[in-house]
């Protein structure tokens, strides 16, 4: 079952931030966004909903200094990504969970737009 309008996820570049990699799924109940933010604890999350946009910001915890870097590939910047959301989403029921650096955002659709089975009499 597909809706016309979908959660749009065009990556926009955010200077000074890392764009987290995401997976987005749609089920009949709503959308699920998984965003990779290694180094971010749930206290470092800032999720804001404004008009039809949801902004995910993940701030890295201050890591203890581990010595002199000999080899460095990680980018120790905070994460940020903005998504335009489907108006069918019930903003009051958005839920977030953080587990081992992966943010899982559940965005349920409001009851009216959920596909409904009509019994044939």
């Amino acid at each position: 079952m597909q809706t016309e309008q979908r959660a749009k996820a065009e990556p926009r570049h955010e200077p000074g931030y890392v764009t987290p990699e995401v997976n987005i799924y749609e089920t009949k109940d709503g959308y699920v966004v998984e965003a990779e933010m290694p180094g971010v604890h749930k206290d470092g999350l800032e999720i804001t909903l404004e008009d039809n946009e949801i902004t995910l910001v993940g701030r890295r915890q201050n890591e203890t200094v581990a010595g002199t870097p000999l080899f460095r590939e990680r980018v120790l910047a905070d994460y940020r990504r903005v998504f335009e959301i489907d108006p069918a989403i019930d903003a009051g029921k958005i839920a977030a969970r953080m587990d081992q650096g992966v943010l899982t955002l559940t965005l349920p659709k409001s009851e009216e737009v959920k596909p409904r089975k009509i019994a044939v009499g």
Partner: peptide, 12 residues
């Protein structure tokens, strides 16, 4: 659990 869902983005 997402095997059946529509996938809009698969970057992970």
């Amino acid at each position: 659990k997402y095997k059946e869902a529509d996938v809009y983005r698969a970057e992970r």
